[in-house]
């Protein structure tokens, strides 16, 4: 892997150049609640020690709602107007737990049927990661095969060397081309320096073996383990909405007028009663503990069975934000000790 050094000014210059190339820059908002389109590049700041945004970066490539086509009706006839997501994006300052999420959900959007909406956005974006020095009780990236310095998902990864200087690790061809386009901004770096910083970043305290979690889930579908969670979970589903890897969605139509409208793809979540409710009134996941069991299984078993990836990056958002303090890291680490 090639390494460079870039100054803080250089980063701003890079973003300015990319803006000129036609990229929209997305970075954590001022109050750190989500990734927003940057209006003023001078406002972009790099905080490796800030906690993950409240809502993950997933919405940059998989928005909370998007039209999949428009339709027009006239008498008996319907005309469908196909659309393509356009616009090039730079996702800037993603923590490795956010960057990795795209590598993970890429699989579900690309097996057999390919979702062009996700894919086009993915293809047209550049992901600039930032090695993370934030740690709290909810983080557990190292337990799901990642780390605060993981390069998974990033095109280039920035490593903070000082307030004004950042190491640049080039990961993908896209990242390499970026460096080649603006050679004046990048100095050839000493790999040891970034490495020193990277080595000094420890992992989160919470540690468990996700293979053990799967092992137990493989053999324990009918279990009372989830009952006490079902007691208190209110089914608000915020965990699924803030999650960088939860990707379930709903498809609905929206009319503007009788004559035209659009079909939408909206976020949806497994914690809702309606999610699996049949038209007949039957509901296979009729109680909250079943819905919670589904979430844990989907992340640590089903997705692994199908895509060989854990559907979780250990970012801890779901637990930080849970209104009733359900802590998924605690739950799965307890599960890992059961098998």
């Amino acid at each position: 892997m090639e390494e460079y050094v870039i100054s803080l000014e250089g980063i701003k210059g890079l973003l300015e150049n990319l803006t000129r190339e036609g990229f929209n820059i997305y970075a954590p908002s001022k109050n750190n609640d989500r990734f927003v389109k940057v209006k003023d590049i001078d406002e972009v700041a790099l905080f490796p020690d800030r906690r993950p945004t409240d809502i993950s970066a997933k919405e940059c490539l998989f928005p909370k709602c998007e039209p999949v086509f428009y339709y027009k009706r006239e008498k008996n006839n319907v005309e469908i107007v196909d659309i393509d997501p356009n616009g090039n994006k730079v996702l800037f300052g993603l923590k490795p737990c956010d960057a990795a999420s795209f590598t993970i959900i890429h699989k579900v959007f690309n097996w057999d049927y390919k979702d062009k909406f996700y894919n086009k956005r993915f293809d047209n974006s550049l992901i600039i990661g930032l090695a993370c020095t934030y740690l709290d009780d909810y983080c557990f990236c190292t337990s799901v095969g990642l780390s605060p310095v993981s390069t998974v998902g990033s095109d280039i990864l920035l490593v903070r060397l000082s307030d004004v200087s950042f190491g640049v690790i080039v990961i993908t061809d896209k990242g390499g081309q970026l460096v080649k386009r603006y050679p004046q901004l990048f100095e050839k770096g000493e790999p040891t320096k970034s490495k020193q910083v990277l080595d000094s970043i420890g992992g989160p305290a919470r540690k468990f073996d996700h293979k053990k979690v799967k092992e137990w889930l493989d053999n324990n579908f009918e279990t009372d383990f989830f009952n006490s969670i079902g007691d208190i979970c209110v089914g608000c589903g915020q965990c699924t909405f803030v999650c960088p890897t939860c990707h379930c969605f709903d498809i609905v139509d929206e009319d503007y007028l009788y004559s035209e409208g659009r079909r939408m793809k909206n976020w949806d979540g497994c914690q809702f009663y309606l999610f699996t409710l049949h038209a007949s009134g039957h509901n296979p996941r009729d109680t909250q503990y079943k819905r919670y069991r589904q979430r844990v299984n989907h992340k640590f078993k089903y997705y692994v069975d199908r895509f060989q990836e854990v559907l979780c990056t250990g970012c801890g958002r779901c637990s930080r934000g849970c209104p009733v303090s359900i802590d998924i890291g605690d739950i799965v680490s307890r599960i890992s000790k059961l098998s």
Partner: peptide
């Protein structure tokens, strides 16, 4: 604009 329609407000 920011609402993501998770209905957490309702559930709690």
């Amino acid at each position: 604009e920011r609402c993501i329609k998770c209905y957490a407000c309702r559930q709690i």
